[in-house]
Simulated scan of single mutants.
Amino acid sequence: MDGARMRSGGEAERLLAERTADLQRVKAEYDNYRMRVRRDRLAVREIAVSNVLAALLPVLDAVDRAYAHEPLTPGLRDIGDTLRTQLGSLGLRDFGEEGDPFDPVCHEAVVHRAAPGAERLVCAEILRPGYRVGDRLLRPACVAVTGPP
């Protein structure tokens, strides 16, 4: 009888070990699922925000043109400031400064001026700013470059 108890005790331990391993596998799969869902939700949010911001860039361009060509009224200044603040709160960042080294990944050269003696292309004039959200490029900066012929 003692042998039967030992066999059943050994059997119970083996079953317990199997069930524990099964439970650990299910828990690991569930944890991975939760992390994947969280990552997917963040990716969908980033894409949605990027799409909305990209759609609003022409509005921002129109405000910039109005700033450049119209007398600045308090109302126009308030609209522009509010628009920039709200877009910035969603992560929109402009880029493109005169003197930046030309980078074809984020700059679109629409004018090239030869500069004898120049060693590399440099953004000489920003014709239209570029925009990013995080690491995502929404629009390249349109620039005039100077550099080697």
Rank of each mutant, 00 (worst) to 15 (best):
C123E: 02
A28Q: 02
G80Q: 06
M1I: 07
T82F: 08
T146F: 09
A43R: 12
R38D: 15
E11Y: 04
G75N: 03
R39V: 14
L92Y: 09
A109C: 02
F95C: 08
E97A: 11
L90Y: 09
V37M: 11
A109Q: 01
R113Q: 14
D94W: 08
R128K: 07
G130D: 01
E13M: 13
P74K: 00
D94S: 12
V63M: 09
H112W: 00
D135M: 06
L90P: 02
L53K: 07
R36P: 05
R25E: 13
A4V: 11
D100Q: 03
C123S: 00
P148H: 02
A62L: 08
C106G: 12
D94L: 11
D78F: 14
A4S: 13
L137S: 00
E29K: 11
L87K: 06
A4L: 15
L138Q: 08
A28M: 04
Y131L: 05
M35A: 15
R5C: 08
V143T: 00
P116T: 03
L15E: 09
H107R: 01
L16R: 07
G80E: 01
R120Y: 02
G134P: 05
V44N: 11
A12E: 09
F102Q: 01
R34A: 12
V44W: 13
T82A: 05
I126R: 09
Y67T: 11
V44C: 09
L56D: 00
E98G: 00
L53H: 01
L23R: 15
E70A: 04
R7G: 11
R128W: 09
P71V: 09
P149F: 03
A21K: 11
H107C: 04
L53Y: 01
V122I: 02
M1L: 12
N51R: 10
T146S: 08
R77E: 04
T85V: 06
L138T: 04
N32C: 11
A144F: 11
M6L: 14
G91N: 00
D22V: 10
F102S: 08
P129C: 04
I47K: 15
C106M: 14
A66Q: 00
P58V: 06
V133N: 05
V26P: 10
S8T: 10
R25C: 07
V122W: 00
E11G: 14
Q86I: 09
R113L: 14
D103W: 05
I126T: 05
R41D: 12
F95S: 01
E97V: 14
L90W: 07
E108C: 07
Q24S: 13
L56H: 05
T146K: 12
R45F: 12
Y30V: 15
V122Q: 06
V59N: 05
D94K: 13
G88F: 03
L57C: 08
A109I: 09
R120I: 07
E108M: 03
G130H: 00
N51I: 06
R14Y: 03
A54W: 11
V59Q: 06
H107K: 01
T82S: 07
G99Y: 04
C142L: 15
A115Y: 11
C142G: 06
S89C: 05
A28C: 06
G10E: 14
L72M: 13
Y33R: 13
G3Q: 15
D2K: 14
